[in-house]
């Protein structure tokens, strides 16, 4: 059964990838890329990687196609033929691919429980994390404690990307404070408006659930942050960007993005203040295990805040660009905008 599912998913992935490479319509490519994300999320599910599947579904099938579509709206969806380097690319791909295939020949078999990766470092996480950290989700234990420093790096990466997008798109629109970036959907779309009103509160509650339930089931700060931002994005899509910005303006969102990183960093520094190493939570409470608990909850909160804030910031900036297109189409030559 597993095997069949595995083969079906892999062949679907392969077909989708070929279709993406083949199509000249960028809109289809973007949608297919979303499907590719969803398929890989399903594949991760079958591999038992539930947290990864959750994240990939949110990113690969959610955020990433959304941003690509926004860019397409500005840049046109037709791709003109330009395969001058097809031969070079084929040569490169053949070489790299051959090297990769050669590399597989000495690999341990797929799923082999005696492979080095399964016998060296990982067993400690599986066997001792309950005693050392005291939470059932091993992925959260490793992510937020054993390798918490990588996760700090990850939050900083997101923060950096947010600032990078900000530095690129800030003030780049023609009509600055005037006009709404995303127009509210007209009143006659009553169903949409009602559906959104009904959906958004559960989405936000669900985000909170994912945020604080990450220790027991799949979830955690990153996924929660994305879902939280999605709630706001949905609101903006239906009721207009200005309506959202009245709740969470640009300044606030930037502040929160920085705040999340600072929260994470401060927990680390607190570890040092209690005489331990950076990001060592064990002295944050009476006994080490509750210390770990507190530490993990707080850093996950930091992750969630930064992720939600950066996602919203990026969404604001992209949709402001769209508004600009509506205001001042003469900036782009219409033939090229497609």
């Amino acid at each position: 059964m597993d095997l069949v599912l595995d083969i079906v998913l892999l062949s679907l992935l392969l077909t989708t990838a070929v279709a993406i490479a083949w199509t000249r319509d960028l809109f289809s490519a973007a949608m297919l890329a979303g499907i590719y994300g969803l398929l890989s999320a399903s594949f991760f599910m079958t591999m038992g990687a539930v947290d990864v599947a959750f994240t990939e579904a949110a990113v690969g099938a959610g955020i990433s196609p959304l941003l690509i579509l926004a860019t397409l709206a500005l840049c046109g969806r037709k791709q003109r033929s330009d395969r001058k380097r097809a031969l070079l690319a084929l040569g490169l791909v053949a070489t790299v691919g051959a090297l990769l295939v050669a590399a597989t020949l000495d690999m341990p078999a797929f799923g082999d429980p005696t492979a080095p990766a399964q016998t060296h470092v990982a067993p400690r996480y599986i066997q001792d994390s309950m005693a050392e950290i005291g939470i059932p989700n091993i992925v959260t234990s490793v992510l937020a404690s054993y390798r918490a420093y990588d996760t700090l790096g990850e939050v900083v990466v997101i923060f950096t990307a947010g600032l990078g997008v900000l530095s690129l798109l800030l003030g780049m629109r023609g009509a600055r404070e005037t006009g709404t970036a995303l127009q509210a959907i007209p009143r006659q779309h009553l169903v949409l408006r009602m559906a959104a009103k009904v959906l958004i509160p559960p989405i936000l509650v669900y985000a909170l659930y994912v945020q604080f339930h990450g220790e027991y089931g799949p979830g955690g700060g990153f996924q929660a942050g994305v879902i939280f931002a999605v709630g706001f994005i949905l609101y903006a899509l239906v009721f207009g960007l200005d309506a959202v910005r009245r709740v969470a303006g640009n300044g606030l969102v930037q502040f929160l993005a920085a705040l999340g990183v600072l929260i994470y960093g401060s927990v680390g520094l607190l570890g040092m203040a209690t005489g331990k190493n950076f990001l060592d939570y064990s002295a944050l409470a009476g006994d080490p295990v509750s210390g770990q608990h507190i530490g993990i909850i707080v850093i996950e909160l930091g992750v969630g805040i930064t992720v939600a804030a950066v996602m919203m910031l990026v969404f604001y900036l992209f949709s402001e660009q769209l508004q600009d297109r509506n205001d001042a189409p003469e900036q782009l030559s219409p033939g090229r905008a497609g």
Partner: peptide, 13 residues
Amino acid sequence: SYRLGGWEAPWGI
């Protein structure tokens, strides 16, 4: 050598 998070080497960073 500095253990981040207080975890010893191959398990922690």
